[in-house]
Design a protein around this nucleic acid. Structure first.
Lengths: 358, 358
DNA sequence: ATGAAAGCGCTAACAA
DNA sequence: TTGTTAGCGCTTTCAT
């Protein structure tokens, strides 16, 4: 006679509880719980009764209560270092979606704020707060960060890393293949003087993409012209001077493959300022399909990373790891998501190929 | 003898609980709770004892348990409609920060996905899930949306709305003043032919900003030239054709005030394509200080909205409203945050003013 | 397939 | 100022 009592004094909002649903459906709260959580051992007729009651009452489970009871405090953190890039924001949205879908609680944290002291301290602090961590670049490239995290007992999954650390799970695209694919596309369009603006050398994705670029050239029998290869840092600003150099060359490239969209946008901007039309006089391609790709004119041909799906996958991996009993062996998963070549307006056949000046 | 028992069977991770802290500090769990939550009625010596135990054990409160116990299931939703704009992403980050700070659980939802049926249904569904809603534009301009939400019993705060609905709380900047300020700045730099690209007419912030523009002109005794006023829609794309028109004028403007950064970026892009140097031949200013402002070259002089602080404020207002007893009267708060004129590289004195062609 | 009992870790209310 | 009691709403375990 404890639960069926009148509403307790400490109840606040008029939220519907599992007991009310149970009462209406004339079953035990336990059965309602089973229905809600999709357990199999429930008779269909019972399930229907319960669902009817749930809908009638507009019952929504109390997340706090269930995670408390289930001891499944599935809190996951997304740790970033450099909140600038358009890329991070996409990732954030994706993770948020995935977390909502899985009833995981997402914590967003800045590694630098976390690690006021040493990295070890930061890792420990984090370990107390969450059970799993999603690590985007460049954090996921840092062996020390990963080690501390793992040592602190947190489950970790690297997202969008160029190479994968065998110790931790990862979700990524094949940067090499993608880089090769988009370069080959440029070649197919008739380009042979294709420049490359590499991304931040400290992130291995940059290297993978560049290797893809080289492979495509090689496959087409085009010798690598080092004069056409420049170093950028994934930022818009870093793309400006190198694009400037490239376009000031006596024999400028007819196409530029930038390591990401931000640098590609910089190249387009520089081209425009020099009176070079994109794509007529210069083709430009980016990488990531971040918001920068469509926030310029012409919109960029680029490689899309399926961030949303990748974030979802990362969360799934984490959740599975967290819920695994301690007796079961630890499992490391490496997942490669399919990228996609997105054709937009920043590419055309090279000017010289289609005839003299129009 | 219930709590001091050996660890219960159902405990999962080795998480430290309040009871262990209490035991170590030789006080009751309640006292620990009070220390943790910063209640005043705790003797300093006791507080220190407790804090020592907390630190020694590395105790971190279990959020699920406390919100369950305190019945403070403060779930707040951020509802958006148009996830495109750079602006929304900033807001998202801000809200996330604020939510973390206040231990509120944040739910991010797309209004359109919510409202598969009518708006009324969407509002009802939302009301079951959360206690409060943060409404950015353009949703916060919709009287019906607000009404349904309020009717459904959710607390609502509009963020960054141009005008304020007297029925609901709001956090915003003074768009009129900001628009006037940045226009005046242009005037002070010597510009007199200042064009304006207005934002989406369905969002009142556009109007406020435009009114600010007019006020600044008037104050300076510059007659409003309607040929220099164009309609945009806050998107990059929408800025392209109108910027084109503006710069194709026989007497083109020497400066453009765009209703937001995206449209300003479009104006810069168009200018570059026409061989017009920014800022030498044309000054451009934006509004919002979104990522678009610094993702182009030259970086935009613009108005910064303190989104982070605004999001924080919105969450505070919501939380206070939610926690207010039902007996207390409902309070509507209107908060105006201080904007800031951010000077960057997209503005210079008009070319003609500093002499003939260089 | 379903139910009863016993908490998960914390805090509001009241007592001391 | 501090402790005691009684849950918050749910799910685990173990019966039935």
């Amino acid at each position: 006679m404890k639960r069926t009592d009148k509403k307790s004094v400490r109840r606040k909002g008029g939220a519907v509880t599992i007991d009310e649903v149970a009462a209406l459906a004339k079953v035990s709260p336990m059965t309602v719980s089973r229905v809600i959580n999709g357990h199999s051992k429930v008779r269909d007729t019972t399930r229907e009764k319960v669902m009817a009651a749930v809908n009638k009452l507009g019952y929504v489970p109390n997340a706090a209560a269930s995670s408390l009871a289930a001891a499944q405090d599935a809190r996951i953190a997304l740790i970033y270092t450099d909140p600038s890039g358009a890329y991070l924001r996409e990732l954030l949205m994706g993770t948020l979606h995935g977390a909502a879908r899985s009833a995981a609680q997402l914590v967003i944290a800045d590694w630098d704020e976390l690690g006021v002291g040493t990295e070890r301290k930061a890792a420990r602090a984090l370990a107390r707060k969450v059970a799993g961590v999603i690590l985007p670049p460049p954090l996921c490239e840092s062996k020390t960060v990963i080690d501390e995290l793992v040592k602190a007992g947190v489950h970790v999954v690297a997202i969008a890393a160029g190479r994968f650390d065998p110790d931790i799970s990862s979700v990524r695209i094949d940067d090499f293949l993608a880089g090769k694919e988009i370069t080959s596309y440029l070649i197919k369009m008739g380009h042979t003087r294709i420049a490359c603006i590499k991304g931040n050398p400290s992130q291995s994705a940059s290297t993978r993409r560049f290797e893809g670029y080289q492979a495509a050239l090689k496959e087409a029998g085009i010798p690598l012209d080092t004069a056409l290869v420049r170093q950028g840092y994934f930022t818009y600003r870093s793309g400006l001077p190198v694009a400037e150099e490239l376009l000031a060359l006596r024999k400028p490239p007819t196409a530029i493959f930038a390591g990401n969209d931000d640098m590609a946008a910089a190249a387009v901007s520089v081209a425009h300022r020099r009176g070079i039309d994109v794509p007529r006089d210069l083709s430009v391609v980016g990488f990531d399909d971040s918001s920068a790709a469509t926030t310029i004119w012409p919109e960029l041909t680029t490689i899309r990373q399926p961030i949303l799906a990748m974030a979802d996958a990362a969360i799934d991996i984490l959740l599975r790891a967290i819920r695994r009993k301690e007796s079961e062996p630890r499992v490391v998963v490496h997942q490669v998501a399919a990228h996609q070549l997105v054709l937009r307006d920043s590419v055309a056949p090279p000017h010289t190929a289609s005839g003299k000046k129009s």
